[in-house]
Design a protein around this nucleic acid. Structure first.
Length: 280
DNA sequence: CCATCTGTTGACTG
DNA sequence: TCAGTCAACAGATG
């Protein structure tokens, strides 16, 4: 699933369904999914209560009693699901949390990329990825001063720069393409070549686009069954992602798709021209 | 069958 | 420090 809006949607769904529940036992069906030997992971969680679900960037922080936190990253296709005890297991269920009320919280992940780290609450910043995570894409956390500073000191091209979670937390491949289109910035533009007005516009678009996507319960592409919570509907608001060959909603030019830093990248060649000395 | 795609990120290379 | 490549893994698509 996850970019930030999708993870936030999962967080809200999980909160509704399992906040306050107590874990009776845990089955780890795919050992590589967790950071501890499976038996240790299972034993440590027995009898713990789910106090709250937090989020940082694309990471879920499942807060448990006795100062424990599960740091859960869904990567490409991780999903949580709640079933009644004993319902047939999905082929791709890798961790089952049996609850004391007769339900099961299950973690499903077709590609097995997701990871869960069980840590003491307060030490979650030691988990790789959270160590260096950048500010949340919000009005308060993502200040213009910060944006200006990081953009000034890097010569990287902007698309991969936006995907780097240590710069800004939560943007993934879809929203990176979308905010660049909204801001009329070419994905290959070096970040230190952006004008102050462009940085300002980009910041604004990042903040509002992420918020609008959260309000729309995230984006659902392909025919993934929605993890949880409400079905996303933000896919109806996408302007360039997956729209290669279709007319740009702003100028009618055909959207093109290129490969940049190994990721599919969609943009309008007319609205988002590459500026500066470098041409091609 | 084969090549290539996919909402992620961390490790490795030169 | 950085850009490029690959790897984890499974399934869909052409």
């Amino acid at each position: 699933m996850p970019e930030l809006p999708e993870v936030e949607t999962v967080r809200r769904g999980l909160t509704k369904l399992v906040e306050g529940s107590t874990i009776k036992s845990v089955d780890v069906l795919y050992p590589k999914m967790v950071n501890l030997p499976p038996k240790d992971f299972e034993n440590a969680l027995k009898g713990k209560k789910i106090d709250r679900i937090d989020r940082r960037g694309k990471y879920l922080l499942i807060r448990l009693s006795d100062h424990l936190t599960i740091v859960s990253h869904l990567r490409m296709e991780g999903k949580y699901d709640v079933e009644l005890d004993g319902a047939p297991l999905d082929k791709h269920t890798h961790v089952v949390f049996h609850l004391t009320d007769g339900r099961e919280l299950r973690y499903n992940d077709t590609r097995k990329f997701g990871r869960m780290n069980l840590v003491d609450t307060g030490t979650e910043m030691s988990v790789a990825g959270l160590k260096t995570i950048g500010p949340e894409p919000t009005e308060q956390a993502l200040t213009l001063d910060y944006m200006t500073a990081i953009f000034k000191k890097s010569r990287k091209v902007i698309k991969p720069f936006l995907l780097d979670q240590s710069n800004i937390a939560g943007l993934g491949n879809i929203y990176a393409d979308e905010v660049l289109w909204l801001s009329k910035i070419n994905p290959k533009q070096p970040v230190n070549s952006l004008k102050p007005a462009q940085i300002k516009r980009l910041r604004k678009n990042i903040i509002t686009e992420i918020q609008m996507a959260i309000d729309g319960h995230g984006t659902t592409v392909h025919s993934y069954s929605t993890a949880y919570g409400e079905a996303g509907n933000f896919q109806n608001h996408l302007n360039v992602y997956g729209k290669q060959g279709e007319p740009c909603p702003r100028c009618g030019t055909k959207i093109v798709k290129i490969k940049l830093a190994q990721r599919g990248t969609h943009y309008c060649p007319k609205c988002q021209p590459l500026r500066g000395e470098k041409h091609e």
